[in-house]
Amino acid sequence: MKSLAELAAIREKMQSKVVIREGMGTTRVVVGMATCGIAAGARPVLNAFVDGVNANGLNDKVAVTQTGCIGICQYEPVVEVYEEGKEKVTYVKLDAAKAAEIVEKHLKGGQVVEEYTIGAYSK
């Protein structure tokens, strides 16, 4: 049975990490979670990013966050990746499998997955 005591253990573990995390340049993965995104399948995409970041130990480097409607509903699920010092990358029409691939190649490997970007899609 999950208990609040386990949560206290997480607290102890985290407190030592908080200090290190501050001031570090982080990558932000922003998932559009308005009606349009949710209806198109943004929830499993968000979960895939969270799980992928977790599984690859990228927690300290990558923050997965949510936003509202990005304004290009026809391309949902839409995800934007912001990296310090680099241009924003907009991925479109994602699903959980594509999200896992982006974690592997882009977030971990540093290579943008061109074929899923809005630039490639609108050609």
Binding site: L4, L7, A8, I10, R11, K13, M14, Q15, V18, V50, V53, N54, N59
Partner: peptide, 15 residues
């Protein structure tokens, strides 16, 4: 339980 400074959005907490 978590106290100040640890967000509920932290992956460990989410899990």
């Amino acid at each position: 339980v978590l106290g100040e400074g640890i967000s509920l959005a932290e992956l460990e907490v989410q899990q």
